[in-house]
Design a protein around this nucleic acid. Structure first.
Lengths: 235, 235
DNA sequence: CGATTCATGTGGCGCAGTTCACAGACTCTG
DNA sequence: CAGAGTCTGTGAACTGCGCCACATGAATCG
């Protein structure tokens, strides 16, 4: 693969992207313009690590393009993907807020370009804007909620249910309003996402496919019956 | 059991307790005194529910005495204890900050008395004190960190490892500096804590006891070899 | 002081999920 | 087009853990 092909030439962060991030949506155009300045562009190749579990956290990231996978590595090589972020999403802000180490690892799933913002700059933005502070609190609360739900899934749901939940979650990510709902993910990545083996994911997916809930292709999954998947979560 | 016996007669919240809470530690005596006013005392019997998963969250809680267990219930009656809070700890603040429903349930583990603070009062405190805002952010970040670690444990660790981790965590809770480290908990409660069955906990504990890592008694567990338990987590 | 209740101890069955092993199919490279 | 790498598909053995069943001892209560 030609690693430099298809690279965006875009450099500076625009308010258009900034205000896609829920965190910064509250800013008006003028505030957004000011907030853009301290961000710096960084590019990552597909598969490249952005940061690792245990690293000191000194900056947060805003995705300009590509997808980024947040995951927990385990000593024995297994891993669980906690979340997949896309253009406009912000991640890595936790370590910035409490000055701790990274709790998870981040890896580029595609050739990605992200904008980084260092702690001091972010704090400066915060101290000057109470609206932003309120939003940070709300965002943290929302994320905490998400994590608890995720924990719930890990603790109680069977693998088919977890896989169905993952499919629905992934399908609502990129695509906004589409009939032929396609998820671009390998079965191995899906296995990591729900914390199981590729083989087991394959068996479950084949079962779903036999029920005509989904259609399998190499590297992607077509969702045919959303309701059925939703019902499957309850199992 | 006499439900009204051993009840503290204490009524009003004192700054001494308030400032034990990490969240309010930043307040000086005068600020703390003002912050105490809106708190109201409520008492719960051992085993009583304080709030339930799904309830609308309208207030946060500060523990004046007793222990409170935060747990996730599952449809089929199983449950996982997420955390145990004690005197000086605050819980239930999440739903207050983002006005959502409770993500978990809270139950009094002993006869407990807690101070409740309603959303409007809390927001009033927040808006008037930026130090407090910073602390809320930091506390949320810390809690997110904890939850992620916990998820990690659920996802990867074997039952013996999870049980060892739980023992260590519980032992560092109440007791500060003790040689004969005793945890007061039933095997059933421990099973709920790590999300498994009592039988399985019993087998694992017996195994630990056979290795002289712990000593079992009715309703309590004596930790004999802390290092061994720490090593066991890695398995 | 029996009786009832609560906590611990143990065996066995069953199955969801893991591990290993290997095979076919697609895709990108030289 | 050959060969290497990647993704998918599938069988079979193995196991961690849930679930049922029941026994025993400690605490509590009338």
């Amino acid at each position: 693969m030609n690693k430099t092909a298809n690279r965006p030439v875009q450099l500076a962060l625009t308010t258009e992207i900034l205000r896609q991030a829920p965190l910064f949506r509250v800013l008006n155009e003028r505030e957004a313009q000011a907030a853009c300045a301290p961000f710096r562009l960084r590019q990552f190749d597909k598969g490249e690590m952005i940061f690792q579990h245990g690293d000191p956290g000194v900056c947060l990231y805003l995705i300009g393009g590509g997808r980024v996978r947040i995951f927990l590595p385990s000593p024995d090589g297994r891993e669980v993907t906690l979340r997949i972020y896309e253009r406009g999403d912000i991640f890595g802000e936790l370590a910035v807020l409490d000055e701790g180490a990274r709790t998870a690892s981040a890896q580029a799933m595609d050739n990605a370009f992200v904008y980084v913002l260092y702690r001091e700059e972010f704090m400066a933005l915060l101290s000057g804007n109470f609206k932003l502070v309120q939003h940070v609190i709300r965002m943290l609360a929302e994320r905490l909620r998400y994590t608890t739900t995720y924990t719930e899934q890990l603790a109680f749901m069977s693998m088919p249910a977890r896989i169905a939940a993952a499919l629905l979650q992934l399908s609502t990510g990129v695509n906004v309003a589409e009939q032929s709902n396609v998820i671009t993910i390998t079965q191995q990545d899906l296995a990591n996402f729900v914390g199981t083996t590729r083989e087991w994911v394959n068996r479950v997916l084949k079962d779903f496919a036999a029920r005509h809930w989904i259609k399998l292709a190499r590297g992607s999954i077509h969702i045919l019956d959303l309701q059925a998947l939703q019902r499957a979560i309850a199992v």
